[in-house]
């Protein structure tokens, strides 16, 4: 009963089977997936992110936003993703070809962000929300990110143009203002760039809504 070699082979072959099936096969099927060019409009989708937004993706990664926010819209009739307005169509593999890393997420402590750029494009909303989510969404459990902002005395030229309009208990000490740092600006650019709603043959946007 000293079947060492048999055991050894069995151990290797079982893992090899799923390594082939779930690693190599997806790589073969999707590893070279490219952009889609619309034959009517010549629009190319998806587009790579521009510099500022790409920098912002790094902050999104470093701060671990993915642990509470997904970036995937499930199909119509499966969950309420589309009914909640998180997207006009389900997301498909092609939506993610530029993402490194892909941050699909597995938890929705907060809402899905696949199309947050489309749903909320207002800069000042994003800044206030990041500075303290209670300002825009009272009762949220999202942490405040005060370290992405600088609280400083108002200079002789008066308040900065990009100072946050804070009121009540959220306002800084008199004579002070809160301005977003570079990181906050990049992060908001990233959030505003999140749009996965291009019309694709494998995931068409419903025509009446696309108008």
């Amino acid at each position: 009963m000293s079947y060492g070699p048999l055991l050894f082979l069995g151990i290797l072959f079982t893992l090899a089977s799923s390594w082939v099936g779930l690693v190599l096969m997806p790589q073969r099927q999707l590893g070279a997936l490219g952009q889609h060019t619309d034959t009517n409009t010549a629009a190319v989708y998806p587009q790579a992110r521009a510099g500022e937004a790409q920098q912002g993706a790094e902050h999104y990664r470093a701060l671990g936003c993915v642990y509470c926010h997904t970036q995937q819209v499930r199909p119509e009739g499966y969950g309420a993703d589309i009914a909640r307005g998180w997207g006009r169509r389900r997301t498909v593999s092609r939506d993610y070809i530029h993402d490194k890393p892909v941050m699909l997420g597995t938890m929705r402590t907060g809402p899905d962000l696949t199309n947050i750029g489309e749903r909320q494009s207002d800069y000042s909303w994003h800044y206030k929300h990041l500075y303290n989510p209670q300002i825009t969404s009272a009762g949220s459990v999202m942490p405040p990110y005060p370290f992405l902002f600088e609280t400083r005395p108002i200079g002789p030229m008066g308040p900065s143009t990009n100072a946050l309009a804070l009121e009540g208990t959220f306002a800084p000490a008199p004579g002070h203002e809160v301005v977003p740092t570079l990181r906050a600006r990049q992060l908001v650019e990233y959030l505003r760039s999140l749009k996965s709603s291009g019309d694709l043959p494998e995931a068409p946007v419903k025509k009446e809504e696309a108008q």
């Binding site: 151990i11 390594w19 779930l22 590893g31 593999s93």
Partner: peptide
């Protein structure tokens, strides 16, 4: 025997030379 294989594959395909798009998600959850 299994673990170094898993860890090695994941490191190469996700960290060292990331594969494209959702293939990352497949390797990640594998």
């Amino acid at each position: 025997l299994w673990f170094p294989w898993l860890y090695g594959t994941a490191q190469v395909m996700l960290i060292v030379e990331p594969v494209r798009g959702v293939v990352q998600a497949a390797v990640n959850w594998w």
